[in-house]
Each structure stands twice: as structure tokens, then as C-alpha cells.
Nucleic acid binder design. Sequence first.
DNA 1: CGTGTTTGACCGGCGC
DNA 2: GCGCCGGTCAAACACG
Length: 256
Amino acid sequence: MDAPNPSKQKVGILREELEQLQKENETLRLMFEVMSSKYRLLHEAYLRESSSTICRGLSRFDLHEQFSDKSLTLRPQVQLTAASSSQVFVKTDPRDESLIVKDGFQWRKYGQKVTKNNPSPRAYFKCSMAPGCPVKKKVQRCLDDKAFLMATYEGHHNHDVDPTIGQSLSSPGSSAKISATTPTSEFRVPVNPFRPGITLDLNLSGSDHENSNNENRNDKRIEDCVASLAKDPGFTAALAAAVARSIIEKPKPPTP
DNA sequence: CGTGTTTGACCGGCGC
DNA sequence: GCGCCGGTCAAACACG
């Protein structure tokens, strides 16, 4: 047995640090994705509230569900408009292999595929609450963090939501628990990511010329909103806890 | 028996 | 034109 080479030890330590940083980077990237989605949701909510007369081709929702409401009740009032797509992340048990996202609608699975860039299968669903409802959704486990399901909604519902199904969102037996960003239940960010039909691709930079003044004003409000969120110790604590927990809980990849 | 799920086959778009 | 890939179809199957 040779005595441990100090330089080799140093290399080992550096390598460990590098791996740690890579993991951290990966986690932060995921968090950034989720936060981006939530930021856009906030933006859209502001647009709807502040300029209800402006038709932007988006679904309209009952704002009964407020950000301070932790019960996560969902009462969407769906309007048939032009096709759009939205993407939401849903925190689930990573061991639960069922790609079920309870979002207040009934879905019929019509296909499943393994896609190229993600070993987890992608499930295809059609809305079965109304015969002619054109809404489809794709559900796939997030590549970065298998605890998250990524659901992509396409189209708009031509019917209302069944409230009894919507209640299952917060039911204890629900297989899919909604989590805005945090993996822990201690810090719940009180924003419901489930707004079927919400368009995340909002064309934030000057989409409608005639609405540009309105948008500037709204952007200013959004900035204020983001600033207030950043100042919110609860939000900051939740974010910090989520990042820390993700780093700690992330299983080490098998060393070759 | 009706309804929903599974899964292999098929189709169309896209890049080379 | 060909092959790859994502999306959809539909027959078989499971379940209540």
C-alpha cells in the first residue's frame, strides 16, 4: 500500500467540488424554469385583471382563487379561443410512475411514447369531459428532476370544469400534489400552477402595437410585483429551502 | 357489457 | 428519397 499522494487527494477533492457545483447548477436551472413559468403566470394574471377589455386570445379564469388562498381551489371559467399551449410543472412522488395530473378535468389516455431526449415515457391525453372538447395534454416526467411532471396543455376547453373533480386537487389521497416550486410542504408558495389553457408564451416584447402603452404599464406593475416577491421573506425562505433541499436530497449518480 | 388503458402500427413533418 | 421522430389510431385487453 502506497501512502496517499497529496496532489491526488487534492484532485479528488476538487472533482468532488466540481460534481457538487454541477448538481447545484442543475438544480438551480430547474428552479429557474419553474420560476419562469410562475412569473409568466403572474404576468398573465396581472394582464387579465388590469386590462380586462383587451382580448389577448387567452382563457379567462375566475380570480376567486387568489394568491393568498392556500386551499388551491380551482374555478376556471373557460372560454373557447384560438389554440394555444401552456406548460406546467407538477410535483409528484418520483416513485409514482403513473403520469396522472389531477387538474380538475377528465382525461382519456390515447397514447404513450418514449421520446428521444427523455427516458421517461410521454403520455398523451384528450379531454373527455365534453364530447367535442379539443384540449389535449402531454405529460412527461421532468428530465432534470423526476419528482416533477411536466404537463403541456394544448387548446382551450369548450366546457366548464367539474368542481367535484377540481376538489381532488387538494384531497389527501391525491396522487399528484401541486407544488409551485418547493419540494417541501413546509413552504408552500400559494400560487396554483394549474390554469389549463394559459399561454406561457406571452410574447412579452411588443406583440400588439396598439397595446404597447398598456403593456409598458403592466410590465412596470409586474416588476413591482416581482420586487415585492423578492422582498418577501417567506418567498425567499421557500426558494432557499427548496434549493437547499434539492441539493441535499439529490441522489449521487453511481460512480463508474 | 361498457368504459378506459395499453401498446404496436401507422402517418406526416422535418432534416440530411 | 430516405430515415428519424413525435403524434395519433385502433385492436386487444383489463376492470368494475
